[in-house]
């Protein structure tokens, strides 16, 4: 499979000159214009911008759900053409299959032989060992997103794509999910692209933050988050970065 070793610093993902437009009632709307960046193995990238700046479109292009009008997406040098399990996506909304139990959702599409054990181990890692036989409708929103995370991580993706996955959760649950995500990422060392509109969430999670400008989405600013983990949200360095992001969001 596509597991990532901790010291692998080859560019995991390269995005080159990505441009995408949509036709809305006959009018061509540019969603993204000439976006380029790359991501090292094990790096966490925060993708930040106001709503309508094309963050989700960018993530959908990397995931392979959409194809670009110009530019390309490379995974370890290979062009992305369709969705695949080496690029796991955690969606903003609940995308668990309602007719499958928690364990069946996590093991969905895996070979039956080794699936049971891997699923059990992954459920344990996300703190849901006792909930395998539950249906999604019987568990809370935070638990659903933990299942969604487990369903992707059990496939050992090289890249984890997250589209505001915790936006619908209450503050306390969200903080717990942040901790879980950070600890899992430090154990498994996959690269992460995390879309958010919340500067604090971006600084808390990311090694690097890209700020996008709206309509059309362009790269406005890149900030390196050089803070030790676990990060204190009231540390001077943290507040300084947060202010810098707010400032670049407000500009223009």
């Amino acid at each position: 499979m596509t597991s990532v070793s901790p010291d692998n610093h080859a560019p995991c993902l390269a995005v080159e000159g990505l441009t995408k437009a949509f036709r809305v009632r006959g009018v061509l709307i540019k969603a993204l214009e000439d976006i380029s960046f790359s991501l090292a193995g094990g790096e966490v990238l925060g993708l930040l911008g106001p709503s309508g700046c094309g963050k989700t479109t960018l993530l959908n292009l990397v995931a392979g759900f959409l194809s670009p009008d110009a530019g390309r997406v490379l995974m370890r040098g290979r062009p992305v053409e369709r969705p695949g399990p080496e690029r796991g996506v955690v969606f903003q909304e609940d995308a668990l299959f309602p007719w499958l139990t928690v364990a069946e959702n996590v093991g969905f599409g895996l070979d039956a032989g080794q699936a049971r054990e891997r699923v059990a181990r992954m459920l344990e890692r996300v703190g849901l060992a006792d909930y395998g036989h539950y249906l999604p409708r019987a568990i809370s929103g935070g638990m659903k997103q933990r299942v969604a995370l487990a369903r992707v991580l059990v496939r050992e993706p090289a890249l984890l794509l997250m589209d505001e996955p915790f936006a619908a959760l209450d503050a306390q649950t969200r903080a717990g999910m942040h901790e879980l995500l950070i600890s899992l990422q430090q154990q498994l060392r996959q690269s992460v692209v995390f879309v958010t509109h919340d500067p604090e969430e971006a600084v808390k999670l990311a090694d690097r933050v890209l700020v996008l400008s709206p309509s059309p989405g362009r790269l406005r600013r890149e900030l390196v988050v050089d803070l030790p983990r676990p990060r204190q949200v009231d540390a001077p360095g943290f507040l300084h970065l947060k202010r810098a992001i707010h400032a670049s969001l407000a500009a223009g």
Partner: peptide, 25 residues
Amino acid sequence: PLFLRAGAMLGLGRARLVCTVLVPA
């Protein structure tokens, strides 16, 4: 449509997507 995207992202081809996602959904 999220279910179909999720299925494709989890590595399913067209035929298996129809049987294991489209029909149950």
